[in-house]
Structures are given as structure tokens and as C-alpha cells.
Nucleic acid binder design. Structure first.
Lengths: 247, 247
DNA sequence: CGCGTCCTTGACACCAGTCAAGCGTTGTGG
DNA sequence: CCACAACGCTTGACTGGTGTCAAGGACGCG
């Protein structure tokens, strides 16, 4: 039963056993949050950092006309707002999608980590930079890819990220998003999301039923989505930059 | 003749005279870079930080099918890649759009700044967080806003950001982007960008000719784009969070 | 067991893309 | 200094991908 925070962060830096122990300790006391519940709302001034340990949450923004855009998914091991304190207030909201286990980490704990655990600090940094890279890739998709490609791309991404967090089960994962939420993510109507899912199914690439996503042909799905995992920065540590403390 | 780096960063933190002097010093030795020239390419491992002092540059990605998506504009005072060293390699490219004056800041200088100038450090942080907020807002636009709204929104954003950098001239700014580049930014065809510009012109909101953008009716333009400047986090320092060192 | 939420399907409308052509500006070399 | 070439802008006609509207069906929760 691996700790998803540990699973994820060890892709970002080589953690010592002490680091792992500290992370495990931190991520212990969890609150159960029901589905579709805001964790932070636009305008809030967060004083703690929230960490998703199970389930899926999302960043989103609601427009005056009622439209909703989902801007990121937070999977197990993902941290919500490491640094937003600097900006003073949230410019978007975060809500659970499925039921989630969430840990609230006091600011002081984060400061202690960044002062005494350089490897953890690196790993946290790495994870925020990956979040940003994902955001850029989503923008690329919205601007340049067709509806079907965007969907396939998103399936690839979530599958891989789930795998990294230790939450994949062979070639299937728990996938609690409704088609309407997929629509709000990809800028598509529910109806069209549905049509595109049918396409991917008929092509024998995936099946998606009862909140279980099964990938039958990963290479095919990646081809269908024009997916290149590079932007997730998952390569092994030797290949990473040599780095320097960045502050 | 204000230094755009100083103009911009003083929106992010209250800088002492010593801070301003240090920043001015840093941003002195400039290289002139011609238009449409890569500053960093996807795959590169940057060892320095680049700073745009005049002109406009952009982050972009080219897809296998030849499509290009522009993911950000770097205006005077903007820093290209403060932290990417941590990821090891660039997952996108940065190129000039117009001719630019660019300063290359050695990594050591950045480290020195972050070690001895807390206000500058805060301001640099603030600026990367704003960059991220802008990215999110672009995603919202791509997913939820019509072509015309997106265009109007972008005009508002660039105008305000130019103003913050001290580069506005009354109600007009230098605007060197071609319609084709606007298309690559907004995920639209050149033809459609052109049609939407005509609309905005006919509505008396803007004029755009010979690389000069004039905004005739800012409130109207903001309404047309559904623009809310909140995400640029430009409010005065008293209103900002109380902050804490974030590491 | 029944009601609500989500999924599915079809018909039709429209926003935005593509193709094609002409025109104005800019910059460059003779 | 003019001529021409390259590039960017503009316009029209047609196409096509996605949105909208509408209705029925299948789960799944209470």
C-alpha cells in the first residue's frame, strides 16, 4: 500500500529513508471529503497547504455566463497550493471531484521541510514545475488538437500520472470523471465528448465503464492523442539536470 | 526612461533603493536579438536566466503536424526561465517576436539575489506566480470564450501588462504581433483573426495599424472580452497577503 | 422500487477552418 | 530612386467540426 505522496515525489528526487519517513509522517492524519466539495474558493487566502491522498480533485474557474473551465486535476500525491500565499488570494477554486482523503499541512511544516530536507524541497519544486508543464500542454491541446485527440491525450496523461502515484491496476485505473466534467476540462460539449469516447472505444483503444478506465492499446492511444510523455518529466534521476539550490 | 524590470517588480514587492540599484545594475549589459530568433529551444539545458528588456518574445511549441501554439508572451521586464534548471531540460522553446534587448543573467547572480535580497526574491516569485495565473486564464479563454472574446481579452491583457512595464503611451502601445501569430496564440486561423479584429474595429473599441494598438474604449473592450484583471495580481502591496518567506 | 443523474443518439444550426485570390506595405538590390 | 519580391492583410465562397436541442435509456442511490 504505497503512500502516493512518496511514490510521486520519488520521481522528482532521490529521497533518503529519513525523507520517506518524514513524508509518511506528514501525510498521516487525513480528512475524508465528500465529492463535489470546494477545498478552497476563489478569493480565499489560504494559510495551509492541502494534499490529496486519494480520489481526484480539480482546479476550476466559473465564468459570469455560468461556464466552467477545469484547469488541472489533482491526483493522489498532488499538492494544491504550495506557494499561493505569496499572491495573497486565490484566483481560482479547487474542489473534489470524487470523494477524497485530504491532508492539511500547516505552513510551518512546509517551512521546516524546506529548511531541513533539501531532497524533499527539490521534489516539491519539481512537482510544481511539472504542474506548470502540464498546464502548458493542456493549452497546446486546446489550441491545436481536435476533440478526439484532446480526449485521447487526456486519457494518456491521467493514466500515466495515476501510475506514477502508484494508483494503477495493470492496464486500468479508477476514473471518476463524468463526461460533463471531461467536457468542462477540454472545452467541449457533453454530447461531443460522448461521441469521441465512442470513437476511441470502437477503435479498440479503451473501455470506460462504471468509473473504470481500461487502456487496451497504450501505444495506439498515444498515437491517437499525439501524446509525448516528455512534458511530465518522468525520466530517471541520472538524466535530470544537475541542479542547484534555487533559493 | 524607467527600467521595465524595476517597473514590473515593484508591483510584486516594495523594493528599497538598494534593491532598485541592484536590479538596474543587473539589467545593464544587453544583447540585441533580431526578430524571430530562438532564445532557447526545446530540449536545451539552460545554465543562465534570460530577461527581456525591450520587444516581445514568446514561449511556443511546434506539433508534429506543423501547428504552432504560443503559450505565453514575454514583455519587457519578464524573465524567461527562472527555475527550469530543476527540470533538466526545456519542454518548449522561447523565441523573439520583434527585435528584443535581452539580458543573460548567470545562475550565480540569481543565487546571490535570493540569498541577500529578500524583497527581490519575493518579487521574482510573485512574477513567476503571475505567469502561471496568466497561463490558467489563457486556458479558460481557450475552453470557454468565443474567438472575438478571446481576442479582446488578449488585447486587454497585453495592454495592461505593457502599462505595468512602463511601456504604454497614453492609450496606445507598440504591438508587433502579426495576425498569424495572434492565430497561433488563440488557436484560430489567420482569416478568422482578421474577421474578429474587423469586428472590434467596427465597434469602435480599438484600432490596430502598423504595429500600433490603440484602445479607444477600455471599459468596452474589457466588457467585450469578459476581462477581469484580477488574475494579473496587480493590486497594491497593502492589499497583498502578509506573506512569509516561502523558502 | 422509483427518481435523479449520467449516458446515448439523432437532427439541425452555426462558428470557425480552408481554399483562393487580390491588394497594400515594406524592404532590398540594381 | 525605382522595381520587384516577400510578406502581411483583406475579402468571398464554401466546408466541416462542434454546439444545441430534444428525447429516450441505463444505472445507482435512497
Amino acid at each position: 500500500m504505497p503512500n502516493p505522496l512518496v511514490s510521486k515525489l520519488s520521481h522528482g528526487a532521490s529521497l533518503s529513508e529519513a525523507d520517506v519517513a518524514r513524508l509518511t509522517e506528514i501525510s498521516a492524519p487525513m480528512a475524508k471529503v465528500p465529492p463535489h466539495t470546494d477545498l478552497i474558493r476563489e478569493g480565499d487566502r489560504p494559510d495551509k497547504v492541502q494534499l490529496v491522498m486519494s480520489g481526484i480533485a480539480c482546479r476550476y474557474k466559473i465564468l459570469p455566463d455560468g461556464g466552467r473551465q477545469i484547469m488541472a486535476f489533482l491526483l493522489p500525491g498532488d499538492i494544491c497550493d504550495l506557494h499561493v500565499t505569496l499572491l495573497g488570494h486565490m484566483d481560482h477554486s479547487i474542489a473534489t471531484v470524487s470523494a477524497c482523503d485530504v491532508v492539511a499541512i500547516p505552513r510551518d511544516t512546509i517551512l521546516e521541510l524546506t529548511n531541513h530536507h533539501p531532497a524533499i524541497t527539490r521534489a516539491l519544486w519539481w512537482s510544481t514545475l511539472v504542474d506548470e508543464a502540464i498546464l502548458r500542454e493542456w493549452l497546446v491541446g486546446m489550441g491545436q488538437r481536435s476533440a478526439e485527440k484532446r480526449l485521447a491525450h487526456l486519457f494518456c496523461e491521467i493514466f500515466l500520472r495515476m501510475q506514477v502515484a502508484g494508483m494503477a491496476n495493470g492496464n486500468s485505473i479508477l476514473f471518476p470523471l463524468t463526461q460533463s466534467e471531461l467536457g468542462d476540462t477540454l472545452g467541449l460539449s457533453v454530447v461531443h465528448v460522448n461521441r469521441m469516447i465512442q470513437n476511441l472505444r470502437e477503435d479498440g483503444l479503451i473501455s470506460l465503464d462504471r468509473k473504470v478506465l481500461e487502456v487496451h492499446d497504450m501505444p495506439g492511444l498515444m498515437r491517437a492523442g499525439g501524446f509525448d510523455p516528455n512534458y511530465l518529466h518522468l525520466r530517471k534521476s541520472e538524466e535530470r539536470g544537475v541542479l542547484g539550490a534555487v533559493s
